[in-house]
Design a protein around this nucleic acid. Sequence first.
DNA 1: ATGGTTGTAGGACAA
Length: 267
Amino acid sequence: MRFSIATWNINSVRLRIDIVARFLEEQRPDVLCLQETKCPDAQFPFADFRKLGYEHIAINGQKGYHGVAIASRLPITASAPRDFCAKGDSRHMSVTLGGAAKGLTIHNFYVPAGGDEPDPAINDKFAHKLAFVDEMTAWFAAEPIAGRAILVGDLNIAPLEHDVWSHKALIKVVSHTPIEVEKLGRAQAAGPWVDALRKFVPAQEKLYTWWSYRAADWDKADKGRRLDHVWVSPALGDAVKSMRVFRDVRGWPRPSDHAPVMVELAL
DNA sequence: ATGGTTGTAGGACAA
């Protein structure tokens, strides 16, 4: 089957439910993974998703901050959140699909942003980010990815030189520092995971998924970063057929600062 | 170099 999955840091699912619905209507991914839903589970807008055909929903939300959700048109046969760093933060959810995608596992991550100061000795938030990625590595090393699996999410790290608008300007800016890039590389290697987006855009070309709100004209300035990722297990490496970053959605009314990203696979 | 904006919640904090 042709299978599509989208990931989008929505920065409040309730505030932006209208553009979520518009995106789902226009693109119809089989699965949508959201981050930063900022929504307690009891207040999640289930009805809006069900109305659009996304009847299978797995959420891990909390009040005010973070929160991830997976909405699917295909049945979800199992779901499990994991509490990284034992902080009680809602930053991960995994599901296994049934139906035509039977046995496919999906991980949805929201890695900590890490604050402003890129020094774990003086910035607890940066220390937390590094520990979180280390825990991802340890987990994948302990339980290597078996079979068909996809990892998506806002990993809050732009690993390659051309994943940011200026490698030189951002080398000491949290999201692109060498220590983060190295740790993310270890996590990816531990799966091992294949970077699906870079299968379609060479490492020498710029590729962004996020543009700050703090720009007079984000589109014109184009000071973006690739913070959102889609990784696939080796078994799916050749199954990835297309990728798209919906930059136009960043320009929709009252947008998130992240654009949705969608990948198509032949399962 | 600095400051710029947005969301949750109804003040400060996270991003």
